[in-house]
Write a protein that binds this DNA or RNA. Structure first.
Lengths: 161, 161
DNA sequence: CAGTATCCGGTGCGATACTG
DNA sequence: CAGTATCGCACCGGATACTG
């Protein structure tokens, strides 16, 4: 009766969500992207309770997205390559939220290229020839030995393992 | 003492997570991408409890990602444009999970272009000149009147609203 | 087939106090 | 400054039974 262990699923999205799924986690990661490294800076910028923050930082550290390094007698939480690799994902979520949940009056934060000053946007998936590709254009094929809950199916409507 | 209302935050990521944040939600969305439209198909493919599935489908419908339409005496859950727009985000999460949490023996599902048969991958964020852009290259600038919890800050280490 | 109704356990999360 | 320790509520998620 325990909750499903997403990290054991064969679906890459499920495993990613096992790491990133708790609500505060992506905001903490966003802070890290913005250059924050200190506990108290995370805490103040996000307005998160210290015990929750400690738990999330430990979780991210345990999963290899952050590294806790001694620095100036204190600690600093630094992004690992794995954590940095989550940037495209973060950007894609951000763009979707931006385009669908900020109607008019809302003034969301802006994400600018430090070098050019241009807004940074997530690229849309395209084929080599430049044509955009959407959910209708793909087939999800379970690999050999896909999970129990998500059964073997092929073609459209296929399980994603 | 109620949990923080992420949908009221000025951070686009927070608002996106208010919609997508519950663990099963992205998997349900993935099923929809794969062509699933019926309640029982979702239930069987995912191995999710019916009450949870009903709640998630209602949530996604309420937030405009799915549309519940009568079809053949039953109902079908169809993707809206907003739901379809989440595909790039789904793909980005999927790729990250794929590249970091499937070491060797694990046989994850494959996502193929229905037309070309090629694997579909999330594009990496790049500048117009083709140079890749990462978290170090961006500045997050709070818009006017950024949220209370996430205070006004500028430049590196800036709040993201 | 497509859900709804109940019940319950685990836990995410919030508030606060405390420590080196 | 950088956390840890407690406490308690809300709520997610699982199991199961039931209905049209």
């Amino acid at each position: 009766m325990r909750p499903t262990d997403f990290s054991a699923m064969r679906c890459p999205v499920a495993r990613a969500m096992a790491v990133l799924g708790e609500r505060w986690t992506l905001l903490i990661l966003g802070e890290a992207f913005a250059g924050t490294t200190r506990f108290d800076a995370f805490r103040r910028n996000l307005g998160i309770a210290p015990n929750i923050l400690a738990a999330r930082l430990a979780h991210l550290t345990a999963h290899g997205l952050l590294l806790r390094v001694p620095e100036g007698g204190r600690h600093a939480y630094r992004l690992t390559p794995r954590g940095r690799d989550a940037f495209p994902l973060y950007l894609a979520i951000r763009d979707w939220g931006l385009s669908h949940f900020f109607p008019e009056g809302a003034a969301p934060t802006v994400l600018l290229d430090r070098a050019t000053g241009e807004p940074v946007l997530a690229p849309r998936p395209r084929r080599a020839d430049g044509t955009p590709i959407g959910p209708e254009d793909v087939v999800i094929r379970p690999g050999p030995g896909a999970g129990e809950a998500i059964r073997r199916r092929f073609g459209p409507g296929a399980a994603h393992g």
